[in-house]
Structure formats: structure tokens, C-alpha cells
Write a protein that binds this DNA or RNA. Structure first.
Lengths: 186, 186
DNA sequence: ACCTGAACACCGTTCAAGT
DNA sequence: ACCTGAACACCGTTCAAGT
């Protein structure tokens, strides 16, 4: 007969599951991580995961949201008072660490609203940061257009792993070209 | 006892399978299409698909390659003598019809070389077409950089379905900004 | 060489039954 | 409320056996 009734508060168990899931997703990718893997790493039976999350996609979405908020918080603390462009570049650069999971979000967000919401949260963060950058330039023109372009470029750079320049290289070039200031060194 | 030995040449059966797979992938997506679906649509048993293709990913890759070459051929015929930018825009616009499958390529190309090759073929087509566009501008500067940016932007625009402008809107803006000619109407 | 039915492997998810 | 083992559902893939 199984050991049951482990007196662990709900939030702690959730946190354990998320921590285990984060590590596994990062190491083995979305498809390479099973619910059984996650539950085993957290010391529970597979079925028990469904007591805390409705589905694998929801675990995944929660993991991604957690990652983003941590990254955003870290950046705010670390780069206080730095110019917006540096912060943007730094954020995008850090996010390259989970490009693989970024790709998986795209394939899952069709079917899971949770994943879609997590993904949108990523784009919102980037868009907001881009706005700050744009407002920093003197001749700021079409804010929305520039933001769309940068966000889209980031998506493309992260998703494709053909021999293309990383977004962090292309974005400063683009900024200068679009905003018509600074170096103009295309 | 099953009907066997259907005297159909290998190429015809392959073509039937590909035609069936194309339609199903377009309608139901990669994950929504099973080998059983494809084989049924072609009138054979599921296992028989593996006589012609090593795996589902290889069927998928073949479908995508077929689509691209048809599209490219159609464009060459249809837009003969047109300016390169129109052709690029038109090609990218047509490709939006299978954005969903484009996304699936990204998630599968990690594990399947065939899918990766098919995907690279797409990017090659775009890159080549972008080169033509760049060479069309008088003050052509960094050809490679511009191509990278456009290709990446296309990837991003196709892959994300958040409320972003389509690549076909952003690209002309970018071209003008990067090449420093024409309207400059950012 | 081409085709089949049956079985295997894997995994997300459900559920009745425990504490 | 929380946890479990067992079973279900689905699907890509394999394989021995047909023609």
C-alpha cells in the first residue's frame, strides 16, 4: 500500500513540480520531457501532476511564464538606469538560452490557450521594451511599426537556426536605419 | 485474404501518397494528420506508407519541398519580367497559406534532417530573391545583412500570429530604410 | 517488389480506490 | 484534499507473412 497523505502545502508541491519541469524542459525539450519524467523528479506519481495542472501544456505554460518573469525581474535589478537599448539587447540575448522552448511554444499555442498567453506575455515584454527604446531616439516616427518589426525579427531569429545573424546584431542596425539617427553604418 | 499486388508503378503511388498527404496536412495540420489518414486517402494500409517513406517526417518534408517548387515555378512563369520586389512580396504572401505547416517545420527540423533540408530550401529561395531585390537598388550596401534581416523577418511574421503586421507590409518599409533610397516614408 | 493485419512502444490522460 | 496503480486512447513504427 502506497505512502500517501504527504503533508506538503499546495504551493510548495506546485513549486517543486515547476522547478523539476523547468530543468527537464530546458535539458530535454518539450517533446523530450514526459509527465512521468516530471512527476518522478518531483517524487510523485504521474497521475498526481493532474491534480495541480490540467495538462502538460499548462505545466509548460507555467514554466515559461515563470522564466520570463524571473528574467524580467533580474534585468530590472541588474540594469537599473541603463539605456533601454542595452536592456532590450541583453534580454533578447538571454532568451536565446531557451530558443528551443520558444519554438515549442509556437507549435503548442495553436491548441493551448495557456501556452498562447505565455507566449503573448513574452511578446508584450519585448514590445514594451522596444517602446522605451524608440522613445529614446530623438526623431521617433512610427512607434508601432518599429515595435512590430523588432518583435517579428526577434521571433524569426529565435525560431530559425539557419546561419543567420542573431537578432541582437541586426536590431541596432535596424534601429539606426529606421529612426534615421546615429551611425547610419549599414 | 487481402487484395495485393496492385500493379501501380512506384512513382505513381508515391505521387498519390504525396497528393493525399498535402491535402491532409494543409487541412488538418501536421499533428492532426496521421499516417493512417494518409494511407486511407491513398487507398493502402498504414504500414505500406513505410515502403515509400522512412517516416512521417519524411512524408512531411517531401510535401513541403513539392509545395515550394510548385510555388517557385508558378511565380517564375506568372511574373516574368516583373520587378524582383513584387515577386518577393508575392511569394511571401502566397506562403502565408501554409504558415501553420511552416511552424511545424520548425518543431520537427530538430529531429529530422529531411525536414531541416526542406526548410533550408525555403530560406534559400527567399534569400536568392532578396539578393535580386537588393541588387536592384542603386545604393546597394550590405547585401548579406539585408538578406538576413528580410529572411528573419519573414520567419518571424509567419511563425507568430499575434497581432503583428504581415511581412509583406514591413518589408518595403525596411527596404527603403536600409537601402536609403526611394520614399523614405517611415 | 509490394502489400497486409497484427502487434509493439510510447505517452498523455482518466478513473476508481486508497488515506 | 491529495495521492496512487492500473487502464484507456492514440499513433508512429515494425514485422512476419502473404502475393
Amino acid at each position: 500500500m502506497p505512502k500517501n497523505r504527504q503533508q506538503i502545502p499546495r504551493e510548495q508541491r506546485t513549486a517543486e513540480l515547476l522547478a523539476a519541469a523547468t530543468e527537464l524542459f530546458l535539458r530535454n525539450g518539450y517533446a523530450g520531457t514526459t509527465i512521468a519524467d516530471i512527476s518522478a523528479a518531483a517524487g510523485v506519481a504521474p497521475a498526481n501532476v493532474y491534480w495541480y495542472f490540467p495538462s502538460k501544456d499548462d505545466v509548460f505554460a507555467a514554466v515559461m511564464e515563470r522564466m520570463l518573469s524571473r528574467e524580467a525581474r533580474a534585468l530590472e535589478h541588474e540594469l537599473q538606469g541603463m539605456e533601454p537599448l542595452s536592456m532590450l539587447i541583453r534580454g533578447l540575448d538571454d532568451m536565446r538560452a531557451f530558443r528551443d522552448l520558444h519554438r515549442s511554444m509556437h507549435s503548442r499555442m495553436q491548441e493551448s490557450v495557456a501556452v498562447r498567453e505565455a507566449h503573448d506575455r513574452f511578446l508584450d515584454w519585448i514590445r514594451t521594451t522596444v517602446y522605451r527604446v524608440v522613445d529614446d531616439y530623438p526623431g521617433a516616427s512610427d512607434r508601432e511599426m518599429v515595435a512590430d518589426i523588432i518583435v517579428t525579427l526577434f521571433e524569426g531569429a529565435n525560431v530559425s537556426d539557419s546561419p543567420l545573424r542573431p537578432a541582437t546584431v541586426m536590431i541596432p542596425v535596424l534601429m539606426d536605419a529606421l529612426m534615421g539617427t546615429k551611425s547610419k553604418s549599414v
